[in-house]
Design a protein around this nucleic acid. Structure first.
Length: 922
RNA sequence: GGAAGUUUAGCUCAGCCGGUUCAGAGCACUUGCCUUACAAGCAAGGGGUCACUGGUUCGAAUCCAGUAACUUCCACCA
């Protein structure tokens, strides 16, 4: 079999993914093994794969594949989220392009379009995950709006309503004037903005007067009264002058000395001409602006509260879309921002603007519509009472039943739960789960409680008849709530609803797969999703939904900027995988991704992954090219080198040692470290050292035993690497399984076995002495190579090596064969004392000499020795200082002192050796 | 305004329950090599006052306090 010198991932990756699918190797059914469950954070159904998904899903796949290879029944459940706001916005936009307005359609018609859109664009992302190698159980693919999940949502809504945990009420909510829906507080992101602070004149109402004279300057205590030719006036600072049409009061702090003169008066809202009271409330910050606050109860949360306390009128001057409403006396129909500009001009023209200052404040935007400033709006919405949920969700995280990686998010989590606000769950959207509330006709137009909540219309009718006492009510009299639910109201059930644990409690699957083990997600949805899943889990199963939460970082570009479409700094993952192979990209992602840290992604890192695949591939090429001693054929009989035996022994020990580290890394979710350790084990230890140790000379065969050992080691390396790089390892593993097999056997193996359900090697006891001895040998080899390198000697020129071995000491020569082979040393001799006319180097405290035929550059040697000597003497001095310190000798533990004494002895020995070598040069 | 985190080599990070010659890794870099597995490679190298200041200690990258810079979360004073 002739293998190409470059590994080509394309064909290989497709081949094996299809093989895995065909063999249903990702599929899981409950059995008697220990389950390992992960539920995917469902991506938007119409979304496409971005680098964040790549990172997140690579990590999940690594964990799932590893668990599977550890003999657990691994089940990774995939699915998508209906993402109500985002998807509805996309559908509305696409309809608009066809000239169709959403509200020209009925709900049913719109939903038809939405489903069509979903079917057309939906699931692309799941296809893309296959390219990545994700080993999801695709048979279980779910959708937050499929039947099972929808039923669960309805059921939970009804249940929580009946428990009194869901209510409907008039509240100040966050309104998205573009999507035309309410949002939860979590869906508002605040952005700092440069804006203006407008100072407006509110003249005292006609006929009112004050008996205070204006002061000439503002820097005196006492009333600061403004007066001009038109009369007395107060100055109000605002960033939103367009809301003055909704002003129904002005407020001052009763303790504010500047504004005492305004108490009890009325002022005239500029331009509007409305006469409003001056109210007093300690809420007002005396230091801000002039200490006078305009009060617009309809358009600001705090003002709304003031309105309630002081019994103020509420004038809603905005339409749902952010234009000025009929309730306003002016500017009706104008957009809020256009209005702001206009009103500023008009105020100025009317002489009602005292001044305008530059000002920086924070403005809330919709998380899903980042261009739309949200508007506080008074509105009847549905809410979940959250205190109860906070109470049940806090303990499992605080007491470690659920572990967060990194741990710092515990704080964030606690902080949020301790200041929890009720969750606004109704959205004025059609794409989503329709709220199962049904309104019956009511005589009283102000009645907001004329509804019942039930899972079906039939049950609702029954309830409505009971509630109203009107047995004549007909199904047609009931109208279902138009609003849909927040997307997260379905996502929070995800780990339960995926196993049908809401509709069918106690079923075999939920009992087996729940709780899941690991959740891999981004920290920005800790409140949206992570916290709420814990709440739902505790509420419905009295069990946490997962044991560990691994928070990935944000994927940024190499300059640390967030990846975004507008910056164009986000590589297309599919293209990346085409270029570097899925394995290469996976490795690139993981290498830069310690838990919780943002990752600065540079495409170049994928090269490292690709190169690594290629390295492994070439190791395979090397091994498959070897001729093996057939044993019975005397012409082809390879004698087993003792060095080969040592090589195998060392490699086995080394692998056991590294495995121990990898296991620890996984326990602590240090995936990039585990990968790096595996990488070095394969590249450095196996390829650079081990294979060079056992590699037969050109044209000569390798002995059977070493060959088998090599295959076995290579095999295990593939197993270790498989979770990280599933494709190349499967390919090589198969090649290794089929070496020496006839075509039929090979075909059988290829068709029936996969690396992915082999058992992962585990760490075993290893002999540290073997590892140390080999390290010494490797240092000797490096020393010899260094001599060649610095003196321009060919690697082909054989050298001799003399090692000083103290009298009576046994030379440590187990790896001599290897030193000879890799250092191209003809002979190693152990001697009692220094060798004349040779280059020296030290390995630890051992002196090594390499005689050279050519002349030695005495000056250069001297300089080098002197440098070493200086360093050793400095080192000795510092050790001596420590040992001379009585407090140290008495205070430090015996072990530490002993170490220092050993250091002293070593240093002295080294110094003596260096000195004698220097002497030698003369 | 409140809280948390970060600061170690050119870059990205590990080390941080104080004590191995402790200052590390990968990449990048330098030098020399197309040595029949691999130039997507091989070999050998260079490189850091562990942000700063002080303290605790026989001993500090590691513990404590403060300072500075950056990041994130929460709050939302118009």
């Amino acid at each position: 079999m002739e293998l190409a010198s470059k590994y080509d991932p394309r064909a290989v990756e497709e081949k094996w993914y299809n093989f895995w699918l065909e063999k249903k190797l990702f599929h899981s059914e409950p059995d008697n093994r220990v389950p390992y469950t992960i539920v995917i954070p469902p991506p938007n159904v119409t979304g496409v794969l971005h680098m964040g998904h790549m990172l997140n899903n690579t990590i999940q796949d690594v964990l799932v594949r590893r668990a599977r290879m550890m003999g657990r029944n691994a089940c990774w459940v995939p699915g998508t989220d209906h993402a109500s706001i985002a998807t509805e916005a996309k559908v509305v936009k696409s309809l608009a392009e066809k000239g169709i307005k959403k509200h020209d359609l009925s709900r049913e018609q719109f939903l038809e379009h939405a489903w069509e859109w979903t079917h057309k664009h939906g699931g692309i992302i799941l296809q893309q995950l296959r390219t990545l190698g994700a080993s999801c159980d695709w048979d279980r693919t779910a959708f937050t709006m499929d039947e099972t999940r929808s039923e669960s949502v309805t059921k939970v809504f009804v249940d929580l309503y009946n428990k009194g945990l869901i209510y409907r009420g008039l509240r100040m909510i966050n309104w998205d004037p573009k999507a035309l829906t309410a949002l939860s507080t979590e869906e508002v992101v605040y952005k700092e903005e440069r804006s203006k602070l407008y100072y407006l004149k509110y003249y005292l109402a006609d006929g009112e007067n004050v008996d205070v004279e204006p002061l000439a300057t503002d820097d005196r205590e006492g009333n600061i009264v403004h007066k001009d030719e038109k009369g007395y006036y107060a100055v109000v600072a605002t960033t939103r002058p367009e809301t003055i049409m909704g002003d129904t009061a002005m407020c001052v702090n009763p303790k504010d000395p500047k504004n005492q003169w305004l108490r009890g008066h009325h002022v005239i809202v500029p331009l509007v001409g409305r006469k409003v009271r001056v109210i007093e409330d300690r809420y007002v910050d005396i230091e801000f602006g002039t200490g006078c606050l305009k009060v617009t109860p309809a358009h600001d949360v705090n003002d709304y509260n003031l309105g309630k306390t002081h019994n103020l009128e509420t004038i809603d001057i905005f339409n749902a879309d952010g234009t000025i409403s009929e309730q306003s006396p002016l500017y009706v129909g104008m957009d809020r921002f256009a209005c702001r500009k206009q009103i500023a001009k008009d105020l100025d023209a009317a002489g009602l603007m005292e001044k305008v200052e530059d000002y920086t404040n924070k403005v809330g935007y919709s998380e899903r519509n980042p261009d739309t400033a949200i508007e506080p709006r008074l509105s009847l919405q549905w809410f979940v009472k959250m205190q109860h949920f906070a109470d049940i969700a806090l303990p499992p995280v605080m007491n470690g039943e659920i572990k967060f990686y990194p741990e710092k998010y515990k704080n964030t989590y606690r902080q949020w739960l301790e200041n929890i606000q009720d969750w606004c769950i109704s959205r004025q959207l059609w794409w989503g789960h329709r709220i199962p509330a049904y309104y019956y006709p009511s005589q009283n137009p102000d009645d907001t409680e004329n509804f019942v909540v039930a899972e079906t219309a039939e049950k609702a009718l029954e309830l409505a008849r009971q509630k109203t006492g009107n047995t004549n009510l007909q199904a047609s009299d009931l109208k279902q709530e138009e609003c849909a639910l927040d997307t997260w109201f379905s996502s929070w059930l995800w780990p339960i609803s995926l196993f049908d644990g809401i509709n069918n409690p106690g079923n075999k699957e939920i009992e087996y797969y729940y709780p899941t083990v690991d959740l891999i997600t981004a920290p920005d949805i800790i409140f949206f999703w992570v916290a709420r899943m814990i709440m739902a889990g505790e509420e419905y199963l009295h069990k946490v939904p997962f044991r560990n939460v691994y928070f990935t970082g944000v994927v940024r570009d190499k300059l640390g900027r967030k990846m975004s479409k507008s910056l164009g700094n986000s590589p297309d993952p599919i293209e990346l995988m085409a270029q570097y192979g899925a394995d290469g990209v996976r490795m690139g992602m993981l290498l830069t991704a310690p838990a919780g840290n943002d990752i600065l992604f540079d495409e170049k890192i994928c090269e490292q992954g690709r190169n690594f695949s290629n390295k492994l591939w070439n190791a395979l090429r090397l091994i498959t090219g070897w001729q093996v001693d057939k044993g019975d054929d005397s012409n082809n009989q390879a004698t087993k080198q003792p060095s080969n035996e040592m090589a195998v022994e060392w490699m086995e020990q080394r692998m056991a040692q590294v495995l121990e580290g990898i296991e620890k890394d996984f326990e602590q979710y240090r995936l990039s470290e585990a990968l790096m350790a595996s990488y070095k084990l394969a590249w450095d230890d196996f390829c650079s050292w081990y294979l060079e140790m056992v590699k037969p000379a050109y044209g000569t065969p390798i002995d059977r035993e070493t060959y088998d050992a090599t295959i076995s080691i290579f095999n295990r390396l593939m197993l270790i690497l498989h979770p990280f790089m599933p494709f190349v390892t499967e390919e090589i593993w198969h090649a290794l399984q089929t070496i020496g097999k006839d075509d039929e056997q090979a075909a059988f193996i290829n068709a029936n076995y996969s690396i992915m359900n082999q058992h992962l090697p585990t760490s075993v006891f290893y002999d540290q002495r073997t590892l140390d001895d080999c390290d010494t040998a490797r240092e000797m080899i490096a020393g010899v190579r260094n001599i060649r390198n610095t003196r321009g000697l060919s690697p082909k020129e054989q050298l001799e090596l003399f090692v000083v071995c103290g009298e009576g000491k046994m030379p440590n020569n187990r790896f001599d064969g290897i030193v000879c082979k890799l250092g191209n040393v003809s002979i190693i001799q152990y001697v009692d004392s220094k060798v004349e006319g040779a280059i020296s180097f030290m390995v630890g405290t051992t002196e090594c000499f390499v005689p050279l035929k050519q002349n030695i550059d005495v000056e250069a040697e001297r300089k080098k020795l002197e440098d070493d000597l200086r360093y050793a003497e400095g080192f000795l001095a510092s050790v001596m200082k420590k040992l001379g310190n009585e407090k140290f000798v008495n205070g430090a533990p015996e072990k530490v002192v002993a170490v220092e004494r050993q250091k002293k002895a070593d240093a002295e020995q080294k110094i003596a050796a260096l000195k004698s070598q220097l002497e030698n040069l003369k």
